[in-house]
Amino acid sequence: MKFTSTFLAATAAFVASALAGASATPLTTRTVFTPPVTYPHAGTVWFSGQTHNVTWDTSDAPSQITNKLGRIFLRKAGITTPLILAENFDILLGRIEVEVPLVLEGTDYQLNLFGDSGNFSPEFTIQGSGI
């Protein structure tokens, strides 16, 4: 196939037009916010059936956050489980009340606070109901 100068000129004009359009579109700066979990902390013991306020630090929240809706998953032995303890809350609240589920007792639980990006709590303990 033989390329003509007309074809090459048309292709160059198309590429230049596409690039000009792309550069004219303003980009919105968005920041991923991963606030550190402050409670539960290492050494915390929860009992199944109790309610607790999970807390996280929002003091360094950027002005533009990609996703402000939070979700908290339970983790066991470094693996995020499908157990959702809370969801659809404003990540800027800094706290949300959760009910401790009935799970196997263990010292290797964590919470995964998820908004823009996941952030894990330190490991803590969940025990039986204590009744």
Rank of each mutant, 00 (worst) to 15 (best):
F47S: 14
V100Q: 01
E97K: 08
K76T: 02
G128V: 07
S129E: 10
T34H: 02
L74S: 00
A77W: 00
I96A: 00
A10M: 08
G70T: 04
S121E: 13
L102E: 13
T66W: 09
P26S: 07
F114G: 06
E105S: 13
Y109G: 03
T31A: 00
T125Y: 08
V32M: 10
A20W: 09
A22Q: 13
E123G: 05
L92H: 11
V103D: 05
K76C: 04
T25S: 13
E97G: 01
I79Y: 05
S48K: 12
W46K: 04
T34N: 12
V54Q: 03
V100C: 02
L8C: 07
S117C: 07
D116T: 05
A10E: 12
N112K: 04
L104S: 15
S17A: 10
L104K: 09
P40A: 04
P122H: 11
S17F: 08
D60V: 10
G70P: 05
H52W: 11
D57S: 12
G70W: 08
D108K: 15
T34R: 14
A24T: 15
V15D: 02
Y109F: 14
P26H: 11
N67F: 00
R30E: 00
T55S: 01
L93C: 08
T29I: 01
A9L: 13
V37I: 11
F47T: 11
E99H: 06
I126E: 06
L19H: 06
A12P: 02
T28D: 05
A24N: 13
M1P: 14
Q64K: 09
D116W: 04
Q110L: 08
A10T: 01
I65R: 12
A86F: 11
L19M: 07
D57G: 08
E99A: 08
L8H: 01
E97F: 01
E87C: 04
A24M: 15
P82V: 03
I131G: 10
V98A: 00
I96W: 00
I72D: 04
T25F: 09
G115K: 10
D90A: 03
L111T: 10
T55I: 02
T125C: 09
V37S: 01
T107Q: 14
A22I: 07
A13I: 15
S117Q: 15
G43V: 00
N119V: 13
S63L: 03
Q110Y: 11
F120K: 12
G94K: 09
A12L: 15
K2M: 05
E99M: 14
H52C: 00
T44F: 00
A77H: 06
T4L: 09
N67D: 11
R75W: 12
P62L: 07
G130M: 09
P26I: 06
G94T: 07
E123M: 14
I65G: 03
F33C: 08
V54N: 04
P82A: 03
T38G: 07
S117V: 07
E123D: 08
P62I: 09
S117M: 06
G94E: 12
P35W: 06
T80I: 13
P26L: 04
V103A: 02
